[in-house]
Design a protein around this nucleic acid. Structure first.
Length: 565
RNA sequence: GGACGCGUAGCUCAGCUGGAUAGAGCAACUGCCUUCUAAGCAGUAGGUCAGAGGUUCGAAUCCUCUCGCGUUCACCA
């Protein structure tokens, strides 16, 4: 159409440039028709005419397209297109004939993508803060899978480093305790949590008193392994209860003992990205507190970081960042595609160096998108819940699952953009009202199901033929909204923003509830009309399409649909 | 002091990557259960999108500066 228009008007413009800026999408306001385009604004520059006049020129090009009912110029020069009623009726038919496939989009094209999330230290059970990253990462993973990526869900176990020494010491204390020794108070700096009693018990079960007779250095590895086994079992169980199943658990210790650090180093060396040097004190810091040390450094500033980063400590051992680089090289090698990290708000300062690392190690072939999940404030009826890590008195993920259930946690934590902090109020999230979106969406689905029960027909027994009976404004609006589902999913996936799925479902539910209530004031608007089988059938098909879409959305969020409430 | 994020209705938040009159829920006020589930619906009221500039046909959205809030800042992990 563009080239036709070009020659007709004898003008020149860059079609690619235009197509990039061109929009053809359903407008916010449904009164503006079904599709809307800004093409006349874009062309007005070349034609040296007002957008409105351009639009009027364009009208007769557009109304020749099939399925177009009416074309109007509006506002500053938008061209609004109204599609014929039958377009929408066939739309519902297509949906029901291809229940599984009608919304398939192939954004990922089978490309691999690796998403690392949770990666909580294996020193204790998961707590509330972990829950958000866990749910977010998991929903994002299944969303990406849904749109055609090959997704690997990965957990990095930080089973090396000083926190493991602390863990071993804490475990040995509990071991003594299990052997009947009075351990009194847990010393400062060790992990006080009760869960370590299980580790002590396991050590006694496996080794009896035998560990007592040996040097600490000799038993370190044994205790370390038993502690990790017990705690990772707790963590996996917490994740299982949240409905999360990771594909890969990677051990930091294995990364260190393998050859990856050397590989990393040689890649950086070849690219001239490492040097021995001394870092300057950060701006604003008192230079008296600054100790100058010569270290092996990575030139992350070449990739936009504010300062270069240490790979080795001054005593020559690797930094955490160095092993993390090696780990990311490992992920790049395995994935040969882009990476995603889901981290907590306290890792904000880490983003730019890991970006630099991935770009350097992948030769700029791949990139990493770091999603930061902001803080979760736990509240009980508006008042903050006090937690103290010191006393081991903090709310665990397991506690939350016990009190509100998995579906509520998942939905609430996803009904917010990841970079916004989130209030999680135990009282509010179990409330059953519109204030609580979980029940709102579930209720819509339960109502769908209830209609089929009243009609004494099963979803799969509906006849999918004639939908010309669906013609009220509200029905068509609902069909239109359902047809937007693949687009919503695509946008959510492209932007790595699973919260959009939640908001879509809430809006869909709202439209459905509204349609339902119409039948209260006006009996002819009910879904089931006693003596009109055809009308009833087509309306039930619409209900089915709603139910299908809600289920698809909930499936991505790993939330079970409810059939009765 | 630097980095990153946030600032939208009294409160909690969306806003489709630059579109038309900025939207939901809660709280307030009006209505709707003999009816396919009222855990719901319809309506009223509530806004200088923190502030000031800039980019253009057009800005809550992009850029710059200012203010406020949050997270963070060397060999920890």
């Amino acid at each position: 159409m563009l080239s036709q228009f070009k020659s007709d008007n004898n003008i020149e413009f860059d079609e690619n440039e235009l197509l990039r800026k061109l929009t053809l999408e359903p407008p916010k306001n449904l009164d503006h028709g079904d599709m809307s385009t800004n093409i006349s604004m874009l062309l007005s520059k070349y034609l040296k005419l007002k957008p409105i006049d351009v639009a009027n020129k364009l009208l007769h090009y557009i109304d020749k397209f099939p399925g177009v009912d009416e074309v109007k110029v509006a506002g500053p020069g938008f061209i609004n297109i109204k599609l014929t009623m039958s377009t929408w009726n066939t739309c519902i038919q297509k949906i029901l004939l291809n229940e599984e496939k009608w919304d398939k989009i192939n954004l990922g094209e089978g490309k691999k993508i690796n998403i690392e999330y949770i990666s909580a230290n294996p020193t204790g059970p998961l707590h509330a803060g972990h829950a958000r990253g866990a749910v977010f990462g998991d929903a994002l993973a299944s969303l990406l899978k849904e749109v055609g990526y090959k997704v690997t869900k990965e957990y990095y176990i930080n089973d090396a480093g000083s926190q493991i020494d602390k863990l071993v010491d804490s475990a040995l204390l509990r071991y003594d305790e299990c052997l009947g020794q009075n351990i009194k108070e847990i010393p400062q700096g060790l992990y006080p949590g009760e869960y370590l009693k299980d580790v002590g018990l396991e050590l006694v079960n496996k080794y009896g008193k035998n560990l007592k007779t040996k040097d600490k250095a000799d038993i370190f590895e044994i205790v370390r392994q038993v502690s990790l086994d017990v705690i990772m079992k707790i963590i996996r169980n917490d994740l299982f209860r949240l409905g999360i199943d990771m594909d890969v658990y990677t051990s930091e210790k294995k990364i260190i003992s393998g050859n990856l650090l050397n590989e990393t180093l040689s890649i950086l060396e070849k690219k001239d990205l490492i040097y021995k040097g001394v870092l300057d004190a950060p701006k604003g810091m008192n230079p008296d507190n600054w100790e100058k040390r010569e270290q092996l450094l990575f030139k992350s500033t070449n990739y936009g970081d504010d300062t270069d980063r240490a790979l080795k400590k001054s005593d020559g051992t690797w930094t955490y960042f160095a092993t993390d680089m090696a780990y990311h090289l490992d992920k790049i090698n395995r994935t040969k595609g882009n990476l995603i990290n889901v981290l907590g708000a306290d890792h904000i300062g880490y983003i730019s160096r890991i970006n630099a690392a991935v770009r350097a190690l992948s030769n700029d072939n791949f990139s990493i998108d770091t999603k930061i999940c902001s803080l979760v404030n736990l509240l009980e009826d508006g008042k903050p819940i006090k937690m103290s890590k010191r006393s081991g008195n903090f709310v665990t993920l397991s506690d939350i699952i016990d009190s509100v259930g998995r579906d509520v946690i998942r939905f609430i934590m996803l009904t917010r953009r990841n970079d916004q902090s989130l209030d999680f109020d135990f009282k509010k999230v179990t409330e059953k009202s519109k204030d609580n979106p979980v029940f709102y969406v579930q209720y819509a689905h339960a109502r769908c199901n209830s209609i089929f029960k009243s009609a004494k027909i099963k979803e799969q027994d509906l006849s999918i033929e004639d939908f010309s009976f669906l013609n009220t404004k509200e029905e068509i609006e609902l069909i239109k909204f359902i047809s937007l589902w693949p687009r919503s999913m695509e946008l959510a996936a492209k932007n790595h923003e699973p919260h959009r799925i939640c908001y879509y479902l809430i809006e869909l539910s709202s439209l459905f509830h509204s349609l339902w209530n119409r039948g209260k004031d006006d009996k002819s608007s009910k879904f089931i009309i006693e003596n009109d089988k055809k009308l009833t059938n087509s309306r039930l098909c619409l209900v089915k399409a709603v139910a299908l879409t809600i289920r698809k959305g909930l499936k991505i969020l790993s939330i079970n649909p409810v059939f009765e409430m």
